[in-house]
């Protein structure tokens, strides 16, 4: 608890209840600024739900109640008075399946920024180029920026979604199994990207893949079902957590 200055996202005793059914209980973890933080655990344990708590996307799921404390840069995230939309611009999210809008590639990249109004209109093309270069998509799409994004391959779409998030200049990016829909080569590209993002930005990534966790994460938290409710059972160095898990199995 001493290094709170260095932690960008801190969850304390977070519980989630869907209707009457508890999904997560007593989750406490700290995401150090500039690090890549992994969440691993079996299917259905509540990893995606935990991720959505961090930027209040849980608000949009009827019947979900989130309790406990979540702070972003020391400020509370939960609570009615917080502007959840502004928060989501600071804490971006990337889903398991890329969700591109049926518009041009350019429009997709600029979809978030152009609404936030944080960038003057004439600088938008530059922002788009920078974001696309950051995800290594620029060379592939620079000649067809105005054609529809839905014809891109799934791997390209996933990178486009990441570019779209990066363009809004978030401090934290939440990634929900970003490579599970991709082939090994496309996954490799995304992993490289994550490593490049670390430092200026912090990443929280859900993954099923220990090897991946070892390659990209600085720390991981392992979730498991205890009495049928998800909770964090272990936090630490990815290699150690992975080894411990293998022993358990």
């Amino acid at each position: 608890m001493s290094d709170s200055a260095a932690s960008i996202l801190r969850l304390e005793n977070v519980s989630v209840v869907a209707g009457a059914k508890p999904i997560l209980r007593g989750v406490t973890l700290d995401v150090p600024e500039g690090s890549v933080f992994g969440l691993i655990g079996p299917s259905g344990v509540g990893k995606s739900t935990l991720l959505k708590c961090c930027n209040r996307l849980t608000d949009l799921i009827p019947g979900l109640r989130v309790e406990g404390s979540i702070t972003f840069r020391g400020q509370s995230v939960l609570g009615r008075r917080i502007d959840a939309d502004a928060l989501r611009a600071k804490i971006g999210i990337l889903f398991q399946q890329p969700a591109v809008f049926p518009r041009s590639i350019m429009a997709n990249v600029l979809f978030g920024v152009s609404h936030l109004g944080s960038v003057p209109r004439r600088e938008l093309p530059m922002v788009a180029e920078r974001a696309l270069r950051e995800v290594a998509l620029w060379d592939e799409v620079k000649d067809r920026l105005t054609s529809s994004a839905i014809y891109l391959s799934v791997g390209q779409q996933q990178r486009l979604c990441l570019a779209r998030t990066l363009a809004t200049n978030p401090d934290v990016i939440l990634m929900d199994e970003p490579t599970s829909a991709l082939d090994p080569q496309a996954s490799e590209v995304i992993e490289q990207l994550i490593l490049r993002l670390r430092g200026p930005r912090s990443v929280v990534i859900v993954t099923h893949n220990f090897a991946q966790a070892r390659r990209v994460c600085d720390r991981v938290a392992r979730l498991a079902l205890v009495h049928n409710i998800g909770t964090v059972v272990e936090i630490g160095n990815p290699a150690i957590v992975a080894a411990a898990t293998r022993e358990e199995e």
Binding site: L57, D85, G92, F101, G112, H115, T165
Partner: peptide, 27 residues
């Protein structure tokens, strides 16, 4: 209109109104 489209827009920090006007209605 798939729920994932709305979620993606909200995840970028758009308000519900912006999502409705820019994502849902056009589709």
């Amino acid at each position: 209109v798939p729920a994932s489209q709305r979620l993606a827009a909200r995840g970028l920090g758009l308000t519900a109104t912006e999502t409705a006007l820019r994502v849902t209605l056009p589709q």
